[in-house]
Simulated scan of single mutants.
Amino acid sequence: MQKPLSKRCFTASHARRNGKKGAKPLDAFKGFRAIADGRGFAVHLDNGAMQSATEAREALAEPYRRETHDRNSTHDRNSQRQSVGGVCLMTPLVDLKGKRGLVIGIANEHSIAAGCAEAFARCGARLAATYLNDKAKDWVQPVVDQLGIEWTAPCDVRIPGELEALFAQVQERWGGLDFLLHSIAFAPKEDLHGRVVDSSAQGFSIAMDVSCHSFLRMAKLAEPLMATGGCLLCVTFYGSERVVEHYNLMGPVKAALESATRYVAAELGAKAIRAHAISPGPIATRAASGIDRFDELLDRAAAQVPAGKLVDVSDVGALAAFLVSDAAKGITGTVIPVDNGQHLFA
């Protein structure tokens, strides 16, 4: 279904193009209607004409753009503004136009990775996404089509060489990479549903390899592709620092992932490559359904948070889009909760 875009996309310049000289910014909405068609944005005029998705996106974004300044130079506030016909317009802080992002871990439209991909796409990023295998591809493809993701590839980190082949495609297709989202985790059911002290060596090793060490492998493969810097994201959970009933083995595994993130940030920081672990509150996703009695965890969390409601994948996506943008270039090595305040309580 086609969805109306935010009115913030429009500016006074569009009002003037519509023959309304000196119109106020809000008057720009008269005569225009914008929709998202799954491949990009299109602008419909009241006379029935329509710009292409690319033309519309360029037209809407142009008044906000400003020239890139040397990072070492000093600017006053006026250098962050543009003047269009005497109207001062601020450059949007979260602008991912032209940035290339790899999203690993989309399972279906309800997954955290899908929510992040949607936010990246809305901010103008070019995206590639992975699917676990051919069976899983049928669940991922609707997300790909809806968001206009440029290309996809299989990625099962347990299969030797598959991750390396993925990054070889990134090099071949794009020649570089600006950001990456790691949103995968796995533990054998018999180990996940038992006590941590009863976990098998093999089960523990598999959980660590898929859920944690794969992030380090991705960081290593992404490093040469991020010649001018970039950002690496992964997804964690507050069960890493507190005992959460039924989270079991994934608690120590996520704790390791968070520690790994800090080391990645420290080791790659000299190359302007940043790293973060995003820690959402409990969200009903396909992956979370593997946790025993997860519905009870959701109910407890909803009753505990100050807002009285849980976050969803769009909340996580909004944070992810900010973190990979230039607006967050001074932030790295963090574990950031997006849980409506649940982390405030024991």
Score class of each variant (00 low, 15 high):
68 T>C: 10
75 H>Y: 14
107 A>Q: 15
88 C>S: 15
65 R>F: 05
57 R>V: 01
115 G>M: 07
108 N>F: 05
84 V>L: 10
87 V>R: 03
90 M>T: 13
93 L>P: 00
120 F>V: 04
92 P>E: 03
100 R>C: 07
60 L>V: 04
104 I>M: 06
46 D>T: 00
76 D>L: 12
85 G>A: 14
60 L>T: 03
44 H>M: 12
62 E>C: 10
67 E>K: 14
114 A>Q: 05
88 C>M: 15
57 R>K: 05
82 Q>A: 11
63 P>S: 10
50 M>C: 02
101 G>C: 11
95 D>Y: 00
59 A>M: 14
79 S>W: 13
122 R>N: 10
97 K>N: 10
56 A>M: 06
95 D>K: 04
122 R>V: 04
61 A>C: 13
58 E>G: 11
68 T>N: 12
81 R>I: 12
67 E>A: 15
74 T>I: 15
48 G>Y: 02
98 G>H: 06
88 C>A: 15
82 Q>N: 14
68 T>Q: 11
43 V>S: 07
62 E>L: 13
66 R>L: 10
109 E>H: 13
98 G>F: 07
124 G>S: 05
49 A>W: 09
124 G>F: 02
97 K>G: 12
76 D>C: 11
51 Q>T: 10
75 H>N: 13
120 F>Q: 08
70 D>M: 12
120 F>T: 06
94 V>F: 01
99 K>Q: 06
100 R>P: 05
101 G>F: 00
53 A>L: 06
113 A>M: 05
118 E>T: 01
49 A>L: 09
44 H>V: 08
66 R>T: 11
108 N>E: 03
42 A>F: 13
72 N>H: 15
93 L>H: 02
75 H>E: 13
71 R>G: 15
77 R>W: 12
56 A>K: 03
45 L>C: 10
124 G>Q: 05
79 S>F: 11
119 A>W: 00
50 M>Y: 06
122 R>Y: 08
100 R>S: 08
56 A>I: 01
44 H>I: 11
103 V>M: 02
43 V>H: 09
47 N>I: 02
57 R>Q: 12
125 A>H: 06
89 L>R: 11
100 R>E: 02
125 A>M: 03
119 A>P: 04
110 H>D: 00
66 R>I: 10
109 E>P: 10
96 L>S: 10
108 N>L: 01
79 S>I: 03
80 Q>R: 14
124 G>K: 08
65 R>M: 11
63 P>V: 08
94 V>K: 04
113 A>P: 01
104 I>F: 00
73 S>A: 07
112 I>H: 07
105 G>M: 08
55 E>D: 15
71 R>A: 15
104 I>P: 04
